[in-house]
């Protein structure tokens, strides 16, 4: 991938909660247009890493650069990173007291200064794209989990981000709704979006991912293309993990 623009650069990152070390010396890069899937057992630090990319977790050692901006930097820089990097959470985190439209319009209108008409058009387009254009005036709790997560993706896309961060986007969903969310993500990847996806969906990782990062105990152990990663595990813990999930 040499020569391609580096979107996320993270070097020797260490994150501690009190005496517990969540990330141990993690270094990796994400390039423009890449889809990077992060997998590993629960408690391995993969969500923490993703959240650190968006400044939701402060790190103690090392450095993270997102879109050329240093983390944490000033308040303005952090805000700039967050506006240019979209984030999708496991628990959707929609604003339940606002309609779907208000959920989508809030950030672009207040943070980017978009006019209501422009933002409204964009919202309608994005909702159509994720297949729920007719639900715009409903409230989040009136939708199914899969629909809510698609709204959350559309909400992040409203900011026209240069990179999308997904934190186990399908883990809180009933099995029959996983597919519809993965379809939206697949669609997004095919349009060249740079994506970092923390996931337990091995099929998705294998099919859509350009690289697989395997984490355990806060360490980044393996960084391989999917065909290599799934076919011939090089690390012992990777082999154990794969034998359990596949």
């Amino acid at each position: 991938m040499a020569g391609k623009q580096v979107v996320i650069d993270c070097r020797n990152v260490v994150k501690r909660y009190g005496t517990f070390t969540a990330l141990r010396d993690v270094s990796t890069r994400v390039h423009k247009g890449e889809v990077v899937c992060v997998i590993g057992p629960s408690g391995s630090g993969k969500s923490t890493l993703l959240r650190a990319f968006n400044g939701l977790e402060a790190i103690q050692v090392g450095m993270i650069e997102v879109l050329g901006l240093h983390m944490p930097g000033t308040r303005k820089e952090l805000e700039a990173i967050r506006r240019r990097a979209g984030m999708v959470f496991q628990g959707f985190n929609l604003f339940n007291h606002m309609s779907i439209r208000e959920n989508l319009l809030l950030a672009p209108m207040t943070a980017l200064g978009l006019t209501r008409d422009l933002a409204d058009d964009r919202a309608q387009n994005l909702l159509d794209r994720v297949g729920i254009g007719n639900q715009i005036d409903k409230y989040p709790t009136q939708l199914s989990g899969g629909q809510q997560q698609r709204v959350a993706i559309a909400r992040a896309l409203m900011m026209q981000p240069e990179v999308m961060l997904f934190d186990e986007p399908t883990s809180a969903l009933d099995p029959e709704m996983v597919g519809e969310v993965l379809d939206v993500m697949r669609d997004l990847a095919s349009q060249g979006m740079t994506m970092v996806v923390v996931t337990h969906e091995m099929g998705f990782a294998r099919e859509v991912g350009d690289r697989i990062l395997f984490m355990a105990d806060g360490q980044l152990l393996v960084d391989q293309p999917p065909d290599v990663f799934f076919a011939s595990p090089t690390d012992e813990r990777q082999a154990v993990f794969l034998s359990k999930v596949l």
Binding site: G86, F89, N93, F95, A111
Partner: peptide
């Protein structure tokens, strides 16, 4: 206040005063 909703608002880059007025205070009042 729901931690997740705060994180979502922050990760969207919503300005702080808007987060207070739209995300924190209305549900808190309720």
């Amino acid at each position: 206040t729901d931690q997740g909703q705060l994180e979502a608002a922050m990760s969207l880059g919503v300005p702080a005063h808007t987060i207070w007025l739209r995300i924190v205070i209305p549900p808190a009042l309720q």
